[in-house]
Amino acid sequence: MSQRLRELFEERRAAGQPMFIPYVTAGYPRPEDCVPILLAMEAGGADVIEIGVPFSDPLADGATVQHANEVALAQGITYRDCCRFVKEARARGLRAPVLFMGYYNPMLALGDDEAARIAAEAGADGFIIVDLPPEEAGSFLEACHKYDLSFVPLVAPTTTDARIAQLAAVADAFLYCVSVTGVTGQRGSLADDLPSFIARIREHTSLPLAVGFGVSTRAHVEAVWKLADAAVIGSAIISTIDAAEENRRAERIREFVEDVSGH
Protein backbone atom coordinates (compact mmCIF):
# COMPACT_ATOMS: atom_id res chain seq x y z
CA MET A 1 0.00 0.00 0.00
CA SER A 2 1.19 3.47 -0.84
CA GLN A 3 1.00 5.47 2.38
CA ARG A 4 1.22 8.70 0.41
CA LEU A 5 -1.76 7.80 -1.75
CA ARG A 6 -3.92 6.67 1.12
CA GLU A 7 -3.14 9.71 3.24
CA LEU A 8 -3.85 12.06 0.37
CA PHE A 9 -7.33 10.62 -0.12
CA GLU A 10 -7.98 10.75 3.63
CA GLU A 11 -6.78 14.35 3.96
CA ARG A 12 -8.84 15.57 1.04
CA ARG A 13 -11.94 13.87 2.25
CA ALA A 14 -11.48 15.31 5.74
CA ALA A 15 -11.04 18.75 4.21
CA GLY A 16 -14.03 18.30 1.90
CA GLN A 17 -11.83 18.88 -1.15
CA PRO A 18 -12.64 16.82 -4.25
CA MET A 19 -9.76 15.46 -6.29
CA PHE A 20 -8.81 15.43 -9.94
CA ILE A 21 -6.90 12.60 -11.68
CA PRO A 22 -5.72 13.01 -15.28
CA TYR A 23 -4.49 10.10 -17.42
CA VAL A 24 -1.94 10.06 -20.20
CA THR A 25 -0.56 7.18 -22.25
CA ALA A 26 3.19 7.03 -21.64
CA GLY A 27 5.20 8.15 -24.63
CA TYR A 28 2.29 9.73 -26.46
CA PRO A 29 2.78 11.37 -28.84
CA ARG A 30 6.58 11.27 -28.38
CA PRO A 31 8.67 9.80 -25.56
CA GLU A 32 10.17 13.21 -24.74
CA ASP A 33 6.68 14.66 -24.15
CA CYS A 34 5.90 12.41 -21.19
CA VAL A 35 7.83 14.03 -18.34
CA PRO A 36 6.85 17.62 -19.27
CA ILE A 37 3.20 16.51 -19.50
CA LEU A 38 3.34 14.87 -16.05
CA LEU A 39 4.82 18.04 -14.55
CA ALA A 40 2.25 20.19 -16.38
CA MET A 41 -0.56 18.06 -15.00
CA GLU A 42 0.63 18.68 -11.45
CA ALA A 43 1.12 22.37 -12.14
CA GLY A 44 -2.45 22.52 -13.46
CA GLY A 45 -3.88 20.99 -10.30
CA ALA A 46 -3.72 17.21 -10.71
CA ASP A 47 -3.91 15.49 -7.32
CA VAL A 48 -2.96 12.04 -8.58
CA ILE A 49 -1.71 11.06 -12.05
CA GLU A 50 -2.45 7.93 -14.03
CA ILE A 51 0.16 6.82 -16.56
CA GLY A 52 -1.12 4.48 -19.23
CA VAL A 53 1.26 1.58 -19.89
CA PRO A 54 0.99 0.90 -23.63
CA PHE A 55 -0.28 -2.53 -24.69
CA SER A 56 -0.82 -4.03 -28.11
CA ASP A 57 -4.35 -5.24 -27.32
CA PRO A 58 -6.18 -2.67 -25.14
CA LEU A 59 -9.58 -4.34 -25.24
CA ALA A 60 -11.30 -2.10 -22.71
CA ASP A 61 -10.26 1.10 -24.45
CA GLY A 62 -12.09 3.16 -27.04
CA ALA A 63 -10.58 4.54 -30.24
CA THR A 64 -8.73 7.51 -28.68
CA VAL A 65 -6.70 5.55 -26.15
CA GLN A 66 -6.24 2.66 -28.62
CA HIS A 67 -4.61 5.09 -31.01
CA ALA A 68 -2.39 6.53 -28.26
CA ASN A 69 -1.27 2.98 -27.41
CA GLU A 70 -0.40 2.26 -31.03
CA VAL A 71 1.61 5.47 -31.39
CA ALA A 72 3.52 4.79 -28.16
CA LEU A 73 4.28 1.18 -29.15
CA ALA A 74 5.44 2.24 -32.60
CA GLN A 75 8.13 4.21 -30.75
CA GLY A 76 9.08 1.19 -28.72
CA ILE A 77 7.73 2.35 -25.34
CA THR A 78 7.90 -0.44 -22.75
CA TYR A 79 6.82 -0.76 -19.15
CA ARG A 80 10.45 -0.10 -18.13
CA ASP A 81 10.25 3.20 -20.03
CA CYS A 82 7.11 4.09 -18.07
CA CYS A 83 9.07 3.59 -14.85
CA ARG A 84 11.93 5.67 -16.26
CA PHE A 85 9.52 8.54 -17.01
CA VAL A 86 8.28 8.51 -13.41
CA LYS A 87 11.81 8.45 -12.05
CA GLU A 88 12.77 11.40 -14.21
CA ALA A 89 9.62 13.34 -13.31
CA ARG A 90 10.31 12.73 -9.59
CA ALA A 91 13.87 14.02 -10.09
CA ARG A 92 12.37 17.12 -11.63
CA GLY A 93 10.09 17.71 -8.68
CA LEU A 94 6.87 15.76 -9.32
CA ARG A 95 5.15 15.16 -5.98
CA ALA A 96 1.70 13.80 -6.89
CA PRO A 97 1.12 10.08 -6.42
CA VAL A 98 1.43 8.19 -9.70
CA LEU A 99 -0.52 5.07 -10.70
CA PHE A 100 0.21 2.85 -13.66
CA MET A 101 -2.92 1.94 -15.59
CA GLY A 102 -3.05 -0.72 -18.23
CA TYR A 103 -3.14 -4.44 -18.93
CA TYR A 104 -1.41 -7.28 -17.15
CA ASN A 105 0.81 -8.84 -19.80
CA PRO A 106 3.58 -6.18 -19.93
CA MET A 107 4.00 -6.53 -16.14
CA LEU A 108 3.75 -10.31 -16.25
CA ALA A 109 6.45 -10.39 -18.94
CA LEU A 110 8.89 -8.95 -16.38
CA GLY A 111 7.53 -11.04 -13.54
CA ASP A 112 5.23 -9.74 -10.78
CA ASP A 113 8.01 -9.03 -8.30
CA GLU A 114 10.29 -7.26 -10.77
CA ALA A 115 7.38 -5.22 -12.16
CA ALA A 116 6.49 -4.00 -8.68
CA ARG A 117 10.10 -3.51 -7.63
CA ILE A 118 10.99 -1.18 -10.51
CA ALA A 119 7.75 0.75 -10.07
CA ALA A 120 8.56 1.36 -6.42
CA GLU A 121 12.15 2.22 -7.19
CA ALA A 122 10.99 4.77 -9.78
CA GLY A 123 8.68 6.41 -7.25
CA ALA A 124 5.32 5.16 -8.51
CA ASP A 125 2.50 4.46 -6.07
CA GLY A 126 0.52 1.60 -7.51
CA PHE A 127 -1.47 -0.06 -10.26
CA ILE A 128 -4.88 -0.06 -11.91
CA ILE A 129 -4.88 -3.16 -14.12
CA VAL A 130 -7.96 -3.49 -16.24
CA ASP A 131 -7.71 -7.22 -16.92
CA LEU A 132 -6.47 -8.36 -13.52
CA PRO A 133 -9.42 -8.91 -11.18
CA PRO A 134 -8.40 -9.68 -7.57
CA GLU A 135 -9.18 -13.39 -8.05
CA GLU A 136 -6.26 -13.63 -10.49
CA ALA A 137 -3.98 -11.15 -8.74
CA GLY A 138 -2.58 -13.32 -5.96
CA SER A 139 1.14 -13.08 -6.63
CA PHE A 140 0.85 -9.58 -8.05
CA LEU A 141 -0.90 -8.41 -4.88
CA GLU A 142 1.89 -9.95 -2.82
CA ALA A 143 4.43 -8.02 -4.84
CA CYS A 144 2.46 -4.80 -4.32
CA HIS A 145 2.42 -5.37 -0.57
CA LYS A 146 6.10 -6.17 -0.52
CA TYR A 147 7.03 -2.87 -2.19
CA ASP A 148 4.38 -0.70 -0.49
CA LEU A 149 2.40 -0.14 -3.64
CA SER A 150 -1.37 0.17 -3.95
CA PHE A 151 -3.54 -2.15 -6.01
CA VAL A 152 -6.68 -0.34 -7.08
CA PRO A 153 -9.65 -2.60 -7.93
CA LEU A 154 -12.21 -1.50 -10.48
CA VAL A 155 -15.97 -1.59 -9.87
CA ALA A 156 -18.42 -1.58 -12.78
CA PRO A 157 -22.16 -0.94 -13.04
CA THR A 158 -22.58 -4.67 -13.66
CA THR A 159 -20.73 -5.59 -10.44
CA THR A 160 -23.03 -7.36 -8.00
CA ASP A 161 -23.53 -6.05 -4.45
CA ALA A 162 -21.84 -9.09 -2.94
CA ARG A 163 -18.81 -8.54 -5.13
CA ILE A 164 -18.53 -4.82 -4.30
CA ALA A 165 -17.80 -5.80 -0.72
CA GLN A 166 -15.15 -8.28 -1.86
CA LEU A 167 -13.47 -5.70 -4.08
CA ALA A 168 -13.51 -3.14 -1.28
CA ALA A 169 -11.78 -5.65 0.98
CA VAL A 170 -8.87 -5.84 -1.47
CA ALA A 171 -8.55 -2.07 -1.95
CA ASP A 172 -6.16 -0.12 0.24
CA ALA A 173 -6.49 3.48 -0.99
CA PHE A 174 -9.59 3.86 -3.14
CA LEU A 175 -11.92 2.10 -5.56
CA TYR A 176 -11.97 2.97 -9.25
CA CYS A 177 -15.57 3.19 -10.42
CA VAL A 178 -16.15 2.57 -14.12
CA SER A 179 -18.98 5.03 -14.79
CA VAL A 180 -20.35 3.36 -17.90
CA THR A 181 -20.98 -0.15 -19.16
CA GLY A 182 -18.50 0.25 -21.97
CA VAL A 183 -15.00 1.19 -23.06
CA THR A 184 -13.01 4.35 -22.32
CA GLY A 185 -13.79 7.44 -24.37
CA GLN A 186 -15.53 10.80 -24.43
CA ARG A 187 -19.30 10.92 -24.28
CA GLY A 188 -21.79 13.78 -24.35
CA SER A 189 -23.15 13.17 -20.89
CA LEU A 190 -22.52 11.05 -17.85
CA ALA A 191 -24.44 7.81 -17.45
CA ASP A 192 -27.97 8.40 -16.12
CA ASP A 193 -27.56 5.67 -13.56
CA LEU A 194 -24.28 7.01 -12.16
CA PRO A 195 -25.89 8.39 -8.94
CA SER A 196 -27.63 5.10 -8.17
CA PHE A 197 -24.47 3.15 -9.05
CA ILE A 198 -22.35 5.24 -6.67
CA ALA A 199 -25.03 5.00 -3.99
CA ARG A 200 -25.00 1.22 -4.35
CA ILE A 201 -21.22 1.17 -3.82
CA ARG A 202 -21.53 3.47 -0.80
CA GLU A 203 -23.83 0.94 0.85
CA HIS A 204 -20.92 -1.50 0.97
CA THR A 205 -17.87 0.61 1.64
CA SER A 206 -16.69 3.91 3.05
CA LEU A 207 -13.52 3.82 0.95
CA PRO A 208 -12.77 6.85 -1.23
CA LEU A 209 -14.17 6.51 -4.76
CA ALA A 210 -12.75 7.74 -8.06
CA VAL A 211 -14.97 7.81 -11.13
CA GLY A 212 -13.62 7.39 -14.65
CA PHE A 213 -14.53 6.21 -18.21
CA GLY A 214 -16.63 8.75 -20.11
CA VAL A 215 -15.69 11.76 -17.93
CA SER A 216 -14.35 14.53 -20.16
CA THR A 217 -15.52 18.06 -19.27
CA ARG A 218 -15.61 20.49 -16.36
CA ALA A 219 -19.37 19.89 -16.06
CA HIS A 220 -18.81 16.13 -15.86
CA VAL A 221 -16.13 16.63 -13.21
CA GLU A 222 -18.43 18.81 -11.10
CA ALA A 223 -21.21 16.27 -11.39
CA VAL A 224 -18.86 13.47 -10.34
CA TRP A 225 -17.62 15.49 -7.35
CA LYS A 226 -21.16 15.66 -6.00
CA LEU A 227 -21.12 11.87 -5.81
CA ALA A 228 -17.54 10.73 -5.34
CA ASP A 229 -14.09 11.75 -4.08
CA ALA A 230 -12.25 12.00 -7.39
CA ALA A 231 -12.85 12.38 -11.11
CA VAL A 232 -10.61 10.80 -13.77
CA ILE A 233 -10.17 12.16 -17.29
CA GLY A 234 -8.25 10.22 -19.93
CA SER A 235 -9.38 10.39 -23.55
CA ALA A 236 -9.99 14.16 -23.36
CA ILE A 237 -6.36 14.58 -22.30
CA ILE A 238 -5.23 12.67 -25.37
CA SER A 239 -7.50 14.83 -27.54
CA THR A 240 -6.06 17.98 -25.94
CA ILE A 241 -2.56 16.79 -26.80
CA ASP A 242 -3.69 16.12 -30.38
CA ALA A 243 -5.10 19.64 -30.70
CA ALA A 244 -2.01 21.34 -29.26
CA GLU A 245 0.81 22.87 -31.26
CA GLU A 246 3.83 20.58 -31.21
CA ASN A 247 5.91 22.82 -28.93
CA ARG A 248 3.07 23.72 -26.55
CA ARG A 249 1.65 20.34 -25.56
CA ALA A 250 2.63 20.56 -21.90
CA GLU A 251 1.32 24.12 -21.66
CA ARG A 252 -2.05 23.15 -23.19
CA ILE A 253 -2.31 20.20 -20.79
CA ARG A 254 -1.64 22.50 -17.82
CA GLU A 255 -4.39 24.86 -19.04
CA PHE A 256 -6.81 21.98 -19.63
CA VAL A 257 -6.20 20.52 -16.18
CA GLU A 258 -6.60 23.98 -14.61
CA ASP A 259 -9.90 24.44 -16.44
CA VAL A 260 -11.47 21.08 -15.63
CA SER A 261 -10.13 20.77 -12.08
CA GLY A 262 -10.71 24.37 -11.09
CA HIS A 263 -7.68 23.99 -8.82
Binding site: D131, P133, E136, L154, T158, T159
Partner: peptide
Protein backbone atom coordinates in the same frame (compact mmCIF):
# COMPACT_ATOMS: atom_id res chain seq x y z
CA UNK B 1 -6.49 -20.55 -18.04
CA UNK B 2 -8.28 -18.40 -15.50
CA UNK B 3 -10.40 -15.32 -15.99
CA UNK B 4 -8.38 -12.18 -16.70
CA UNK B 5 -11.22 -9.88 -17.63
CA UNK B 6 -12.44 -6.31 -17.15
CA UNK B 7 -14.73 -6.00 -14.13
CA UNK B 8 -17.66 -5.13 -16.40
CA UNK B 9 -17.67 -8.68 -17.77
CA UNK B 10 -17.31 -10.59 -14.48
CA UNK B 11 -21.01 -10.96 -13.86
CA UNK B 12 -21.70 -12.18 -17.41
Amino acid sequence: GGRYIPETLVRA
